[in-house]
Simulated scan of single mutants.
Amino acid sequence: MEPLQDTSIQEWNKLYNRFQSLVNKLENSITKDPELVLLDNADLLQLFKISHKTAQNWRDNKVIAFSQIGNKIYYRLSDIKKLLDANYKPINKR
């Protein structure tokens, strides 16, 4: 049986690697056409730190556009940008 510390380090490394993979995917997509860049549902959940249920509600309430192929959900990077832009609240300085 592994010591708890080793298990925690391994889990942290797995999480870090998943995060780094997402960061790399997003960095590589910056130079591409946002219409062509797709994120899957897991990417959206990580990006916005939301639950599956929240993502489902956003789709049901037409908050964000999506494509579905079989059981897999995809979002265009441009649609995510539209969602952010539509909900942008600028600071009014006086």
Rank of each mutant, 00 (worst) to 15 (best):
Q10A: 15
E11I: 13
W12L: 15
N17C: 14
Q10R: 15
N28I: 05
Y74Q: 04
R94K: 13
E27V: 06
I64T: 05
W58F: 05
N92A: 10
L44C: 04
L84G: 08
Q10I: 14
P3A: 09
I80G: 00
Q10L: 14
N61G: 02
S78K: 05
D79V: 00
N92W: 07
E2W: 12
D33Q: 09
H52E: 11
L39C: 04
V23H: 10
Y88R: 12
D85C: 09
S21R: 08
L84F: 09
Q46V: 01
S51W: 08
D79C: 04
K72P: 03
W12D: 10
Q10M: 15
S78I: 08
S51Y: 08
W12N: 08
D60E: 09
Y88A: 09
N17G: 11
V37Y: 02
R94N: 09
N61I: 01
D6H: 12
K81T: 04
K25H: 08
T31S: 06
V63T: 12
G70P: 01
N28G: 07
K14H: 13
F66Y: 09
V37F: 00
L77V: 02
A65H: 05
A42E: 06
S29G: 12
N87Q: 13
K14D: 14
L44Q: 00
L26D: 02
N17W: 10
D6R: 15
A65N: 15
D33R: 03
N24P: 01
T54N: 04
Q20T: 11
